[in-house]
Nucleic acid binder design. Structure first.
Lengths: 340, 340
DNA sequence: GACTGGCACTCGCTACAGTCGAGTGCCAGA
DNA sequence: TCTGGCACTCGACTGTAGCGAGTGCCAGTC
């Protein structure tokens, strides 16, 4: 089990070279490119140990070594040195995010920026409704039996939903409904609303009861239970870099996974504290993504976290660089949101 | 130039076989699978003529023939027989679209349905704002210098945008602003609003002038000039069917094109009457899509058209089937919208 | 004049053998 | 514990040969 410092250095060198060249790396090339201070033969012995421990493997006899998922894991946890962003990247982030007029705008710019900087697939979750509170609710009459419910959250998110009323409701009743729901719900977190909504129904005047019941159903259904989460995606074309060598030749499963919102949410939906999460290959719970790695983190104004963002790429990715970029972008987006 | 009936029948047979098998089709196989009533030798002569005219070509000497873009064009225009939807497909469409609660919901279901039925990449444009009229405008105060402008269109589309006011505006002024913009703009088409918006500014009371100017700028910018169009996409995983034979081995350009909203709009943004449009390979103006075909059509409630939808796939696609499906889905969506 | 059978020819595909070289594992010696 | 040396492995590449689908052409037939 003893992995002395040199063996770790060898592993690090293997990962770095393989990520850079995308080709199995041999002992000779290693000592040439890195100052290991020992001969190829020694490196070979170390490699044999690393292979035995499952950190690297040979695609076939008489080929160089390639890191395994486990090897990447060790690399990320203990070996990678933090890679500071280049000034150019820093500038790109600022330039990209300045001038966003809108939450939608912010999210779209962010996801494009991430994809561009990391040259991978980027995913950004809209601020989660569960972690937002209600800023305003608006009821717009469409017809006598139809309302458009518009909710504005403090995170800037706006959701709307059509409400079909069981019976015609006169305009002044709509005004009452609007006032009631706003009085009760504004300021409260969406995840805490169910009892409040129930109270609304119970307390409302008889002639409003019917409409309020429908309204509350829609409120709960749309905002709390169901597709409360939205997601933006960019950079799928980056999957084709590395000419089909990554992803064992088939983009199919990856593209399929990317079409499923649920899957994406599982990837970047941050529940833990605001650390950066790295999932490497097999560690991924989604079968279709066993050949991919995901780097994700939470973002939000100040210290609170309202959503997640991250990138997805081949296991053979530049982890230090990607991690740095994802973190930096998340921080900038947080600052941007804090200004609202 | 003389393409007699038999030569056309040969072309049709070639297209049908090639689409089905994805392999160059030879004269012998052709006479076996189709009742052409002549010998392979005769078919070969016909093929030579068809090749000379540019309708088919040989990938290499001693291979069968493959249709060219021009061949597909002729096939679509004159040779394809309408393929009625199967009852199963019909049921699928109905089942899929029933129960949509929302414009968003309708669009998402539609795009998934299209992708699933055609087994290709589906694109659905949200009802165009340019072809919608204003149903209601709402101004929600966020702070004293910030408003959220929410526009609801008669097509069900809802757009919102943050408005930064030049100076604080008291609540009663917001009420006035709201009343004014609604009085002037409700019911008018968005494409016709610029003069109306200008008039609003000119006519508004001095103390509202500043706020109204900003508001009008935002209105014009967001709703008329800029990203007024939205698009939904699904089925990118279908690009990987046909194992890289289609799209000459690289999905790259296709995926890149699909990331550009502008490109997608050009593809399906219907300006012409409500015919079904088929763009085959080279006919496509977008360079990245020279290896693909697009089948698109307009949709809308009744006879009016409010947006476009379509699918994108390899030039080697089942045109009759795809055309039928695209049309059917567009019709169903139109009916669905008409109910609102 | 249109169609057909026959025939020689083309050329991609597959299999197989041979060579090359990067890379390894192992071992004896420093 | 490290190193140099050596035999070995095996994928990548090259060249050759045979196969077969498919063609073009031509002379003959209806």
């Amino acid at each position: 089990m003893g992995l002395d410092d040199r063996k770790l250095a060898v592993l690090r060198a293997i990962v770095e070279d393989y990520v850079a060249t995308q080709e199995p790396v041999g002992s000779k090339a290693l000592v040439e490119r890195h100052q290991l201070g020992v001969s190829p033969a020694t490196v070979r012995n170390d490699m044999a140990v690393l292979e035995e421990e499952g950190y690297i493997r040979q695609p076939h006899t008489s080929a160089g070594r390639v890191p395994t998922d486990r090897g990447y894991r060790l690399f990320v946890d203990r070996l990678s040195r933090v890679k500071p962003l280049s000034p150019a990247e820093r500038r790109a982030i600022e330039r990209f995010l300045v001038g966003a007029v809108d939450l939608d705008d912010v999210v779209h710019r962010t996801v494009r920026l991430l994809a561009q900087l990391t040259r991978q697939v980027a995913v950004v979750q809209y601020p989660s409704l569960a972690r937002s509170s209600v800023r305003h609710l608006e009821l717009v009459p469409i017809s006598t039996t139809r309302l458009m419910l518009v909710m504005i959250a403090d995170t800037g998110r706006v959701e709307q939903r059509l409400v079909e009323l069981p019976a015609p409701v006169p305009a002044e009743d709509v005004t009452d409904l609007r006032r009631l729901v706003n009085e009760k719900l504004v300021g409260s977190r969406l995840s805490d609303t169910p009892p409040l909504v129930q109270a609304l129904v119970d307390e409302s005047a008889p002639h409003l009861r019917g409409a309020m019941t429908t309204l509350s159903t829609v409120l709960l259904e749309t905002l709390v239970e169901r597709h409360e989460e939205r997601i933006a995606l960019a950079g799928t074309a980056n999957l084709t870099r590395g000419g089909l060598l990554d992803f064992q030749g088939s983009l199919r499963p990856i593209l399929e996974a990317l079409e499923e919102e649920v899957v994406l949410l599982k990837l970047i939906g941050e529940t833990e504290p605001s650390t950066t999460r790295v999932l490497i290959g097999d560690e991924n719970e989604v079968d279709n993504l066993r050949a991919a790695s995901v780097v994700s983190t939470g973002y939000g104004p100040g210290a609170t976290i309202v959503g997640g963002l991250g990138v997805l790429g081949p296991t053979r990715m530049d982890y230090p660089g990607t991690i740095a970029t994802v973190r930096a972008v998340a921080r900038y987006v947080g600052e941007l949101l804090a200004q609202n």
